[in-house]
């Protein structure tokens, strides 16, 4: 009987991580920025129908990079988690933290137990209430690692460069237009072509809105805001 090949756990994890990172680095990037009235999400995404950014619940949004079918699965699981919880308790009891933890658990399990890890990173963003609490941005990696980020977050292929750019250029309390211009500039850091409204998917969690805070910014409005900076 032939012996199965022995691979040390360390090597196996390393291989998996490398595999996942490779998949993610091929994808386009997403940034999240806190602005004066909430949180802004900007993704480079030429498709107008397949979304990378979406609504999960009243104050919670989701963004994913990497393999579409994998983060789409995670997104739907998130909507189910949130709606079930909100229906059995109350709408106020649905929190970004619980959801981010659930994603972290799921991705961690998949990473250690399945042959192929998910090639995704996700952001869970919760906008603060008007009562002075803080916005929450959770960044969850392919292996279940979870970080909470402040002011801004970036993920995807060129996340490191984008993060460096944002570190130097981000200011607190930006109005929406300026935050959006900054976000688009951040996405352009690693490429030499200019991004127009046709290459972008933009949404905000707008604190000033009633109940459901999530709002997409349509291309027409985008081109107006971006046009001002050109």
């Amino acid at each position: 009987m032939p012996l199965p090949y022995y691979v040390s756990p360390e090597q196996m994890m390393k291989d998996k991580a490398e595999y996942a990172r490779k998949g993610i680095s091929r994808g386009k990037s997403i940034v999240a920025l806190e602005y004066s009235d909430g949180v802004l999400l900007v993704a480079e995404n030429p498709s107008t129908l397949l979304h990378k950014i979406s609504e999960i619940y009243d104050r919670i949004a989701f963004a994913g990079v990497g393999k579409y079918n994998e983060f789409e699965n995670l997104r739907i699981a998130g909507v189910r988690h949130a709606d079930l919880k909100g229906y059995s308790y109350s709408r106020g009891d649905v929190t970004g933290k619980a959801l981010a933890n659930a994603y972290s658990q799921a991705l961690g399990n998949i990473f250690t137990q399945d042959i192929k890890p998910f090639e995704v990173e996700v952001l869970v963003v919760e906008v603060a209430e008007a009562n002075g609490s803080k916005n929450e941005i959770y960044h969850i990696l392919y292996d279940g690692t979870i970080e909470d980020e402040h002011n801004y977050a970036a993920m995807g292929g060129q996340a490191d460069e984008i993060r460096r750019f944002l570190k130097d250029n981000y200011r607190e309390g930006l109005p929406l237009e300026e935050a959006l211009q900054l976000g688009v500039r951040a996405l352009m850091v690693t490429q030499n072509k200019a991004l127009t409204e046709l290459d972008l998917e933009v949404a905000v969690l707008d604190r000033t809105k009633e109940r459901r805070k999530f709002r997409r910014i349509p291309p027409e409005a985008l081109s107006q805001i971006l046009g001002g900076s050109r």
């Binding site: 609504e55 909507v79 189910r80 709606d83």
Partner: peptide
């Protein structure tokens, strides 16, 4: 009514 509200919102979010 509450279940119906959730049903509509759930559909909208999942299907886009």
């Amino acid at each position: 009514a509450r279940l119906f509200q959730t049903e509509l919102e759930h559909y909208e979010k999942v299907e886009g």
